[in-house]
């Protein structure tokens, strides 16, 4: 579904964010891209969604070679993805429902159908009762769930999230990850850039490890990140309920 062949990304400042990265992600995989801050996680995500262009090497997404992609085809490539940004990029001038409607307006979904789907997406992330609220009135976890609702409302084949659990307490992070897990279980390819490894044992994702721009498969033998004790996973029951609801 996503293939990188010897991809290097050097920024104009000379900083080499990725060095000779090759990877292959199949449809339906659940992938954690992890590593220190500045290891290149965000760059990897941006390259996948063609937000950045590689300095060298080839990227193929859904059978499309990104380096041969015309600018006019870019918007349609992006619609394959549900993107959750590190800074969420919610629109604070409009209510929750309108935020979720945006991708459907872009796709030209008829308004009645769009509303139905937006409400269904809000339901999946547990925000149905907040549809009229302004994003500013939501908690950090709720804002993140709103960002996910907006990402999934168009039923993308690939969910791509950059640090979706940053700045969240363990309970909220657990909820967020269980939502991603539920989408993966219904066949969506989910790729998360995160340095939060305490969920690896529970969710058993494929782990890609970035260090100094080089990509490694699996966690290093001596992980610099302490795996959290298992009791940190004892999240209030909400997360399991959410998974059940979403996959029902």
């Amino acid at each position: 579904m996503i293939t990188f062949a010897n991809v290097t990304k050097r920024y104009p400042t000379g900083f080499e964010a990725l060095r000779d990265v090759s990877l292959d992600i199949q449809a339906g995989e659940f992938v954690f891209v992890t590593g220190h801050s500045g290891a290149g996680k965000t760059t990897l995500v941006k390259l996948m969604a063609a937000i950045e262009r590689p300095t060298s090497g080839g990227i193929i997404v859904n059978g499309q070679n990104l380096s041969a992609l015309r600018a006019s085809a870019l918007p349609f490539l992006r619609r394959n993805f549900g993107l959750v940004f590190q800074d969420q990029k919610l629109l604070f001038d409009r209510p929750v429902l309108a935020n979720v409607l945006l991708p459907l307006e872009i796709a030209g979904t008829p308004p009645r159908e769009a509303k139905k789907r937006a409400l269904a997406a809000l339901d999946k992330v547990g925000l149905l009762d907040r549809e009229k609220a302004l994003p500013i009135a939501l908690s950090g976890g709720e804002q993140q769930r709103l960002a996910i609702a907006r990402a999934v409302v168009n039923r993308p084949a690939i969910l791509l999230a950059d640090e979706p659990t940053a700045n969240l307490d363990a309970a909220s992070a657990g909820q967020i990850l269980s939502i991603f897990n539920s989408f993966n279980q219904v066949g969506v390819t989910v790729i998360l850039a995160t340095h939060d490894l305490q969920w690896v044992d529970k969710l058993r994702p494929r782990v890609l490890w970035l260090a100094k721009g080089k990509l490694h498969e699996g966690l290093p033998a001596q992980s610099p990140v302490e795996l959290a004790p298992l009791n940190a996973l004892a999240v209030p029951g909400a997360s399991d309920t959410l998974i059940e609801e979403a996959t029902r």
Binding site: S72, R78, R79, K89, L91, L102, P103, I106
Partner: peptide, 16 residues
């Protein structure tokens, strides 16, 4: 500007 940036990131064409 933010609305336009987000719209383009999630697949809006220049026409949209």
């Amino acid at each position: 500007a933010q609305e336009i940036e987000v719209a383009r990131l999630i697949g809006a064409t220049p026409g949209f």
